[in-house]
Design a protein around this nucleic acid. Structure first.
Lengths: 347, 347
DNA sequence: GTTAGCACTCAATCAAGTCGAGTGCTAATC
DNA sequence: GATTAGCACTCGACTTGATTGAGTGCTAAC
């Protein structure tokens, strides 16, 4: 799909205007923008085309157009220009550079707090987690003919347990054998050393009990996954309420509730691969709660500590270009502050 | 001020009804409550009396009555009965008892998260902080004739600074003297050892520079206050949006923004003395942002770690009796879990 | 002291009417 | 063939006015 130069300009103008105003954009508005000296009627035709292509939509006949997810996507991928910080913005941000904190985690939280305050965006993030958690030991206790309780104790002495039901009858030799096997193979092994192959190995080794093993391993896997003790946090959640799209309390509540749940943040943070900056727009999100939100995510690296994630969250019409630029600045600053972290320095 | 038995009953009925419905309560509603077999007209007279006493107010003529801060206060202090947990509530809460976590802080956070989820109230708290932070050293640099920069470095290498303006002209001997004095008297002294008397002592000693000293000491005090490295946290903030009083997004935003700021939470947490349970109603709060909120606070103690604070926050018409009971249960549970903290135990 | 009755108040709700921003289409123009 | 002016039409947003009903205060009777 190729857009003409003019269509690109119009799409860009519509999106940027909508980002600022949150109001559907009409053809007259665009035509007055003097970017391109054509009348509103022409714009109307072009906009009808763009709508046909699925880049714009109309909330109802006789309203202006608003960008669709695909529209934003095209904008972000192909049209967006780099956001230029104004002098005063640079000055405000530069003053942050003077922060001097030693505890890395609290520094990052502090920093995101300030950025959230300055940009008026909500920031979510996860601190750099080490993958050296492990499971201390496993216990398996038969409950009745076809169920047993699996108990898992982690290095932090968190105890998890689950009653597991089997398709067939079992006896205590089975539970014993399984728990022995788990203890031998997985107890004390740090998370980063456990991978799928290891699990498959076990599965092969225990071939006889295959059907019995599956639910057990599922739960074990769950436990291992949740071992990561990286912390997630959120700054400036209330900023979301600034956006007219959340003037409906019900909607706002659903989103805030979603963000309240650390599990969800974890999942979000985990989704970022090593790409530079990842942008997830509207219904590209896995969670339906986020179908009207966009997320701009990036990761940072602290040597000896691992990788953390940090990102902006806002309505789909967020200012992507500013978000991306700010995020780069923020992660850059984290890198800078953590690399030369010999404190003691005066201001 | 003494209330007759009937007035008490009516006040209690109004408050409890209002807590449930968030609607102004009319005389007919109360009269139908069959608690006391009198007609609505009688209730009206009594309610007029209660309004005159300042315990009830009317949002407008021809609306029912709603309790005033003073009304809630009398209710809480003198009328309120203990909340009785229902069997199912007790069962749900009891299942929490089975949690086994060792890291005290994360346990408490986890616990408050679950309680927030179950009670649908927002919970704020601060973890048990040690008071052994200190300020490493002070520097004072003259900037011009009547201002100087005060730089404070804490034990965590957090650097704070503030430009301080004086009423009179100063020279470098003054700044030098002040910074020497601060370093001699306060540098390296842990927070718990610093008290008002110490500050007064300094003030007396430096009598000559009294007017100069005041703004300096103010800032120093600020720094010392913020030394406490106990962490504050909030669980289930979005629950606030359930209350119709926050269906106005503007209002909700102000409150959430206030709670977003850790400083404010810190101040709130600090305000709890060693009382059993402290209830702060509406405009009894220092912060105007909380003038429509009530807070039920309590503290818990972990031996060897210090004191933490935990509390519910909600609209003034919160269910005080339930909040108090739940809070007692919660802090009790924390005590219990932290006292016999020999983990390793199976479920 | 209590209650029934009545006039009065006032927010909330609803329907009807108006307004205006914006569209799509057609015919004229460049 | 692309652009534009003009016009009829659509539809949400807003205004207005009438209606409703919950609730009050007061007075007179019980």
């Amino acid at each position: 799909m190729d857009l003409g130069e003019r269509k690109k300009k119009i799409l860009g103008a519509v999106i940027e205007h909508y980002i600022r105003t949150a109001e559907p954009v009409g053809s007259r508005t665009i035509s007055k923008l003097d970017e391109l000296g054509v009348s509103s009627a022409t714009i109307r035709n072009e906009m009808a085309d763009l709508e046909e292509m699925g880049l714009l939509t109309q909330p109802h006949t006789s309203a202006g157009r608003i960008p669709s997810t695909m529209g934003y996507r095209t904008y972000v991928d192909r049209l967006m220009k780099n956001y230029e910080f104004s002098v005063s913005e640079i000055n405000r941000l530069r003053s942050l550079m003077e922060l001097q904190l030693t505890e890395v985690d609290s520094m990052i939280k502090e920093l995101t707090g300030i950025y959230s305050y300055l940009t008026n965006y909500t920031i979510v993030g996860s601190s750099a987690g080490n993958n050296n958690g492990y499971i201390k030991n496993f216990h398996m206790v038969q409950i009745d003919r076809n169920s047993a309780l699996l108990i898992v104790v982690t290095d932090k002495n968190i105890v998890k347990n689950k009653q597991i039901y089997f398709d067939c009858d079992i006896d205590s030799t089975v539970t014993e054998k399984i728990s022995n096997m788990l203890n031998e193979n997985l107890a004390g092994v740090v998370k980063s050393k456990i991978n799928l192959e290891k699990i498959y190995e076990i599965q092969a080794e225990m071939d006889v009990y295959k059907s019995v093993l599956l639910p057990v391993l599922n739960f074990v896997n769950e436990c291992i996954e949740s071992l990561d003790n990286s912390e997630v946090f959120i700054s400036g959640a209330s900023k979301l309420l600034d956006f007219p799209e959340y003037s409906n309390v019900q909607k706002a509540k659903e989103l805030l509730e979603f963000l309240d749940n650390k599990e969800n943040l974890h999942r979000m943070a985990a989704s970022v691969d090593n790409a530079d900056v990842k942008i997830i727009i509207g219904n590209e999100n896995d969670a339906i709660e986020l179908k009207d939100c966009s997320i701009v995510l990036s990761s940072y690296n602290i040597k000896g500590k691992g990788t953390g994630t940090i990102g902006f969250i806002g309505p789909t019409r967020m200012n992507y270009s500013k978000a991306v630029s700010t995020l780069k600045l923020l992660t850059g600053q984290i890198d800078k502050l953590t690399s030369n972290k010999e404190p003691e320095g005066e201001k």
